[in-house]
Structures are given as structure tokens and as C-alpha cells.
Simulated assay, not measured.
Amino acid sequence: MIQWLQQAENSTIARFIECYWFIEKDQAAGSEPFPQLNPDPCPHLMLSPSKQFYGYQSKDVVYEGRGSHWIFPHSETFTLDHSKPFQHLGIKFHAGALYSLVIPEYSHPSLNSVSCLGLSHLKASLKMDETMLLKLAQTDSQGCVEQLDSLLMPWLVGIEQDKHSELSQKALLLLNSSNIADLGERLFCSQRTLERSFARVTGLSLKQVQSMNKLEALLEYLYQRGVAELDWVDIAYRFGFSDQPHLIRHLKKQIGLTPQRYAEQRGLTIDVYGGVAANKR
């Protein structure tokens, strides 16, 4: 399996895009056929071969189709269909970025869904050729990133962020290191104003995004350590849980696994789309 991830370096592009990533599975790969995609406040534009199947399943809905598509912010865990060979070149946008971007037919916020809405028009206006980009991604990650920068720059260079977006972006920078109740005061506005602007821009509450970020940090911590190194009591307190049972309930609710079960099957629940696993080549 080929994987890479590169951060957006151009300052204009980095205002809206967190990173580019690529993942490819061939016929011989022995990886998990149905991994899980963790909750994520960020939308992803997935560039894929036009006839390639994709499948995502949430609690109650199955999303299936072919070719390129959007994965919108999702507070639920998605089960992915990786049972067949595939290629995905991903553009991971910052949380709330789509609020400022003009995408035909896109009605914000759109949560817990996968869709090709407005994608044909977007690809045409940006002159995106998936076949060319995917071939480049296989052999030259830096060249692929430079090409994506070149294609996206005309779209992003003139985008202005309104007061709701600016306030939300400031809140996102503070969210992992602050109590939610203190954010309004720190940003010189009422808590109600902050909550309303944040929901308008991201489609999510401050608490939802903080919880997603904590889950991602927790799973990354577990992913990078062997089972013998894991002290569950210490981990519970390290990540702000009152005790070990609280940690167990949280993970069970979010990803359907207890901490011990996750440690044994950690490859099944890591964020393979623009997340920790994508850093491994």
C-alpha cells in the first residue's frame, strides 16, 4: 500500500486547506478490508478514478457511488469498503472552510454524508484531470502537491472570510487548550454569539469539535505505542477523563471498541484518510 501526506505550505492555500494526501491499495495488499474512518470536523475532496467504486456506512445509511466525491464533516464513525484495489487523492480542508467557498448546489452545513454534489462543475472550473493527478501522486508526491497548488490558487486567492468565519477560526485555534465556557471572554464576545457563529460556519458545536479533536489525539497516542506500554489509568487522566471507566465508555461510544480491543486492532480504527496512518509510507 502506498501512502503519503503533505501539509499545505502556501499561505493562501493553507488558509483553507490543511493537507493533501494519497492512498493506494493494490490487489496483493493484505490490509484490513473494512477499516473505520474516525469522526472528523474537516471536509475532504476525494479525487478518484471515474469508474472506481466507493462505499461508506454509518449507523443507518450506506453511501455508494463511483469516482470522485466529497466526504463532509461527520460526527459519526464511517466503515469504509476497502475490499477491492483503489486510489484516492485527498484534499483535506480546514473545519468550516466550505462556508467561505462558493460551491454550486452545496448547502451548508452538510453533515454525516458523502456526495458528488457540485463536483463536476468544480472540477471543470479548476480544470482538474483526476487521471493525470493520480499518476503523478503515485510517482512524485511533491510534484503532485505543486500541481494541486497551481490548480487551486485561482479559486482560493480571492476568497474573503466574513466575521462569523474569522471568529470561528480563532475559536478553533484555542479549542484544544481552553475550556469552552471561557472562549467567549477570550475572544471578546458573548458565549452565545460565539456558539451561533461557530455552528453557522462548521455545522458543529464547539463541544462536538473538541470531542473529535480529543479522540484523534487519543487514538494517535495509542497508535504510536505498543500494548505493553499502555497504562490505562494514566491515559485516562492524560486526556481529561475522570477515570478509566469513563475512558472505556467514551471509546466504546465513539468507535465501538474498548481501549484494550482498540490496542489489539488499532489498524482498524485509525483515520486512514489524511490522518495518522497516512504518515506511514
Rank of each mutant, 00 (worst) to 15 (best):
L151K: 14
L152W: 14
L152G: 00
P154V: 05
L156R: 12
V157N: 05
I159D: 01
Q161T: 05
D162Y: 06
D162A: 03
D162V: 04
K163L: 04
S165A: 15
S165E: 11
K170L: 07
A171W: 05
A171I: 00
L173C: 11
L173E: 14
L173D: 13
L175F: 09
N176T: 07
N176L: 06
N176H: 10
N176V: 01
S177L: 04
S178G: 01
S178F: 09
N179F: 11
N179A: 12
I180W: 10
A181K: 15
A181L: 11
A181S: 12
A181I: 11
A181W: 07
G184D: 02
E185F: 12
E185I: 09
R186P: 03
L187F: 11
C189Q: 02
C189A: 04
S190H: 13
S190E: 05
S190L: 07
Q191C: 05
R192M: 03
R192N: 06
T193R: 14
T193P: 05
T193V: 11
R196I: 10
A199I: 03
A199N: 12
A199Y: 13
R200E: 15
V201L: 03
T202A: 07
G203T: 02
G203D: 03
G203M: 01
L204E: 06
L206M: 10
L206Y: 09
Q208V: 00
Q210A: 13
S211H: 10
S211I: 02
M212F: 12
M212T: 01
N213W: 15
N213R: 15
K214W: 06
K214M: 10
L215M: 04
L215Q: 06
L218D: 01
L219W: 04
E220V: 10
Q224K: 07
Q224V: 04
R225S: 00
G226T: 09
A228R: 07
L230V: 13
W232T: 00
W232S: 02
V233W: 04
D234C: 02
I235L: 12
F239W: 05
F241W: 10
D243N: 15
D243K: 13
D243Y: 09
Q244N: 09
P245H: 03
H246P: 00
I248C: 09
I248F: 07
R249N: 11
H250A: 12
H250P: 00
L251A: 00
L251M: 15
L251P: 00
K252Q: 14
Q254G: 00
Q254K: 15
G256N: 06
G256Q: 09
L257V: 00
Q260K: 12
R261L: 08
